[in-house]
Design a protein around this nucleic acid. Structure first.
Length: 572
DNA sequence: ACAGACCGCGCC
DNA sequence: AAAGGGCGCGGTCTGT
């Protein structure tokens, strides 16, 4: 094949059987204008062909779902630069139109792919026997449907759909960033986060005692359980059972409404201290103990599975390993390999900055020019009281008002009417059952039928006080969700753009660096010590580029706090 | 025995 | 006037 620039390569894969470490499938090469460049091919092993095309053409790979194919390619040593993930794009577009949760194998996409009339309202539930483009292991395509042609058709439909939303440019950025995120997620799962099992084990031994026999409690937990029982007058009590603990306290003459740590801390009783310690250690044991280590750490790396597109707001989820909840105490087990460092970068106070940019609030943007936004906000509006400034801002974004936040929020509203007005408008939209969007167009789900029923029930003339209260409550709850959605979703937009841009920059300019971890607004790069400065420079440029991509020419700054360390625990 | 609800807590 | 957003996970408890 002559060397020339080709805009798109469309790949369709139908995994067959066990796979045996290889991924088979159809592959078709197309030029940018949609003209096929040669016949579609069937390959028993896609990896070599993908590697070759990547080397010669740097195409955009269009495939049903990155998570279904890219991990296998990575295991075969093949990395690609860019892709269009049909399933993720389909989800974003469907959600934009308020059709959350519909099967990704949209009936309309199928109809288009098969040249059939497109139904106006595709059935919401896919039948078991209905073939699907996006879950290729379910069932093969119907006879006579060429998989490459189907992918081309669906892709074309998505390009059109992206062009028809209110801000097509933003939707295109979103789809590209989401697709790049899927690539980065697979790469990070593959690479893994450097993890010193010996450090982790030493920590467990120090806090819990030696590893217990299967079914037994660690020594330290058994000891604390005895102390708790003794302090409660020798009553039977299972510290793992909230109900049992409440009963035991009641029997000892102490009324506790629940066993939440912050509740217990207010209780003056000798059982409280050992109980709090028990709960903390029991959690470490259950969630990140020896069995976690066995399940998730191999050859010195923690390999979580990221789920891109798993949260409507655009945040990532994880499957197994609780990767996004690594306790701070365990971060000492995250160590760079010899001669290497970890570059830890997190966006400083991302959400309030996002709000300033979203709302176009010039005054808040000014406040956000400072490195420490909350300190700057405190100086501006809260007589220098940083804690109060932070509470005020968080209540605006979350809809909370506990801890006397009401008056603080009022200060914020007077001083920054555009920013506060923006989230309050989002809350009102939600209270009325409407949809809200992130900056790039991620869209909140419509409220459930049960919600609508409750809202309707409260406004009927015969509604009693309880029904009215329930209705009001449901409306407010959903309003809090949509209020937060615009901020959380737009922060996810920014973070996705950052990751996409950083990934491209690193592969082009600091190839020895690898992305090893990402959580919401924080990214970890593992690299040889000698290139740490280069990585820092790329990070800063990436943050600026991401800001421009998502918010255009906003005056709001989005600084990164960057730490070059050998141990994750030393960052911050 | 198993599934699913609830609790409580970890992270952002 | 009052109203805290998102998730994953492992534990218990309840219903079948």
């Amino acid at each position: 094949m002559p060397r020339r620039t080709i805009g798109f390569v469309l790949v369709f894969v139908v995994p067959r059987g066990g796979g045996a470490g290889r991924v088979a499938g159809h592959l078709g090469v197309f030029t940018e204008d949609g003209t096929p460049a040669g016949e579609p091919e069937w390959l028993d092993d896609l990896a070599p062909r993908v590697a070759e095309l990547e080397r010669t053409h740097r195409p955009r790979w269009v495939w049903p779902h990155t998570a279904d194919i890219y991990p296998d390619l990575l295991r075969s040593g093949v990395r690609v630069e860019r892709c269009h993930d049909l399933a993720l794009a389909e989800g974003l577009i469907l959600n934009y139109h308020g059709r959350h949760g519909e099967p990704r194998a949209l009936a309309a996409a199928w109809a288009r792919a098969r040249g059939l009339p497109v139904p106006d309202d595709p059935p919401p539930v896919r039948r078991e026997d209905q073939p699907t483009l996006f879950e290729p292991d379910r069932s093969p395509l119907p006879d006579g449907v060429d998989p490459v042609r189907a992918a081309v058709t669906v892709h074309g439909g998505q390009q059109r759909a992206a062009g028809e939303v209110e801000h097509p440019d933003r939707m295109r950025v979103l789809i590209a960033a989401e697709s790049a995120g899927a690539l980065a997620a697979a790469e990070m799962s593959h690479a893994g986060l450097p993890w010193r099992a010996d450090v982790h084990e030493a920590l467990l031994a120090e806090l819990l005692g030696p590893r217990p026999a299967p079914g037994a409690r660690p020594a330290r937990l058994a000891e604390l359980a005895e102390k708790i029982a003794a302090a409660l007058g020798g009553r039977q009590v299972n510290p793992d059972s909230p109900a049992s603990v409440v009963r035991a306290f009641a029997a000892a003459g102490v009324d506790v409404p629940s066993t939440r740590a912050w509740v217990l801390r207010e209780v003056d009783h000798p059982a409280v201290e050992p109980l709090l310690e028990y709960k903390e250690l029991a959690r470490l044991y259950a969630a990140h103990g020896w069995s976690w280590l066995e399940s998730w750490v191999r050859h010195g790396r923690f390999h979580p599975e990221y789920v891109v597109g798993g949260v409507v707001s655009g945040r990532w989820a994880t499957r197994g390993g609780a990767a996004l909840q690594l306790p701070r105490a365990l971060r000492s087990a995250v160590r760079a390999e010899p001669g290497h460092v970890l570059v830890v970068a997190d966006a400083a106070q991302l959400e309030p900055r996002v709000l300033a940019a979203l709302a176009g609030d010039a005054r808040l943007a000014e406040v956000a020019a400072a490195g420490d936004l909350y300190a700057s906000l405190a100086a501006d509006s809260f007589a220098g009281d940083r804690a109060r400034a932070k509470v005020a801002m968080l209540s605006a974004m979350y809809g909370g008002s506990s801890g006397g936040a009401g008056p603080l929020l009022a200060v914020l509203r007077r001083r920054f009417p555009d920013a506060v007005g923006y989230v309050e408008a989002a809350a009102r939209t939600g209270e009325q059952g409407g949809l809200v969007r992130s900056r790039l167009g991620r869209t909140s789900p419509p409220p459930s039928a049960a919600w609508r029923e409750m809202i309707g029930g409260g406004s009927r003339p015969e509604a009693d006080e309880t029904a009215q209260r329930r209705s009001l409550r449901a409306a407010r709850d959903w309003g809090r969700f949509t209020r937060n959605f615009v901020v959380q979703g737009s922060a996810a937009d920014w973070a996705a753009a950052l990751l996409a841009v950083l990934r491209r920059r690193l592969s082009a300019r600091v190839s020895a660096a690898e992305l090893v971890f990402f959580q919401h607004d924080e990214v970890l790069v593992h690299c040889p010590e000698a290139v740490a400065d280069a990585v820092c420079a790329e990070l800063c440029s990436a943050a600026e580029e991401a800001t421009r991509l998502v918010f255009g020419a906003t005056p709001v700054r989005f600084p990164l706090d960057v730490h070059v360390v050998t141990c994750y625990a030393d960052a911050k």
